[in-house]
């Protein structure tokens, strides 16, 4: 049930992207719509432009992280380091821009590059040194958390001297073109990343091997494919996507917060799982992950706007994760 397969039959890539999800993701998508309707009925303040944009904005960072980890999960692996990796990339970005005063594009590339490098390291631990992904990335998670604190001197790095940096996430190109639709650039970037990664997954060798490794790694190896190298490539790519998330969060906060990041990996993994990606590997789509991430943030925002006590918000989020995965399992039976 690879995306590429259905995509092919329908011709156009975008048609394929939607079509491949259509059948499989109907349920998740319907749940999302139900949530939106439910909250609209629950609070008159929920369904307003500014709140919808707030929801999208809240999805942007977790969404990009979830897209990155989707790749790893499709290979049958897991990446626990994405949260702190994101922070690490933000800090590196801060070092380049604030400490060294380099131009903005250099800082952005450095942040993304740092992610790619971290992914490369995780990939090497997993593919070459045969350390189980759970352990390898648990180690990376702690290493990167520590390094972020060390490099930043345990203080937030502010980007006040880099004008325009905060526009990466907070600005709105769409709002300039279409007045009255001030969708932040962070959200735009989330969707661009989603489209880009969906393309890579369905249309490139890297994507094909991502599914193949998750489906049957040994068969890939015995097909004469340099499976280790591709696995490292996938982790590197996922790392670069985390790097994008790092730049996004740094821009949104206009600062690199070195202590942040722990816990984000679980939230991203939850979004991936709600989106129907199997933790056993071999299956999953970016559209699903995107919907999963949206469900999470609609739920959080909606419960807040309805002024539900915070303790119960947490309970509801947990229940939704279990329900969503249960529904997905029932569908596959």
């Amino acid at each position: 049930m690879t995306a590429s397969v259905d995509a092919k039959k329908e011709g156009g890539f975008l048609a394929g992207l939607i079509k491949s999800g259509a059948h499989q993701k109907l349920l998740a998508f319907a749940s999302l719509i139900m949530l939106l309707i439910g909250f609209s009925l629950g609070s008159p303040n929920f369904m307003q432009m500014s709140n919808m944009i707030a929801i999208l904005q809240a999805t942007s960072v977790i969404g990009v992280l979830a897209i990155g980890v989707t790749l790893i999960i499709i290979t049958g692996g897991i990446d626990l380091s994405i949260g702190t990796m994101m922070t690490f990339c933000a800090v590196i970005c801060g070092v380049f821009l604030t400490y060294w005063g380099l131009p903005l594009p250099v800082g952005v590339v450095a942040g993304i590059g740092a992610g790619a490098f971290c992914g490369f390291c995780s990939g090497t631990f997993v593919a070459k040194m045969k350390i189980p992904p759970f352990i390898a990335t648990l180690g990376m998670m702690l290493i990167l958390k520590g390094l972020s604190l060390v490099i930043s001197g345990t203080r937030p790095i502010y980007f006040n001297d880099t004008p325009g940096f905060d526009k990466i996430s907070r600005g709105s190109l769409i709002g300039e073109v279409i007045p009255g639709l001030p969708i932040p650039n962070g959200v735009l970037i989330l969707f661009l990343v989603a489209i880009g990664v969906a393309y890579v997954l369905s249309r490139t060798v890297l994507g094909r091997y991502t599914y193949a490794l998750g489906s049957n790694e040994e068969a890939v190896r015995l097909s004469g494919v340099n499976a280790d190298r591709w696995k490292i490539a996938i982790y590197t790519f996922a790392g670069a996507i985390c790097g994008i998330a790092g730049v996004l969060i740094a821009s949104r906060l206009n600062s690199a917060q070195p202590a942040l990041g722990l816990g984000y990996e679980l939230e991203a993994i939850a979004a991936v799982v709600i989106g129907g990606t199997s933790l056993a590997g071999g299956r999953g789509t970016i559209l699903g992950t995107l919907i999963g991430a949206l469900i999470m943030s609609v739920l959080t925002n909606g419960l807040r706007v309805m002024s539900v006590a915070q303790e119960w918000q947490t309970v509801a989020t947990g229940a939704i994760i279990i329900l969503a995965v249960y529904a997905d399992m029932s569908r596959k039976k």
Binding site: Q48, S50, A54, Q57, A58, T300, N301, R304, V305, S307
Partner: peptide, 9 residues
């Protein structure tokens, strides 16, 4: 995000 949700109300 909490602040944003608070503003919505």
């Amino acid at each position: 995000d909490m602040l944003a949700a608070a503003l919505a109300n």
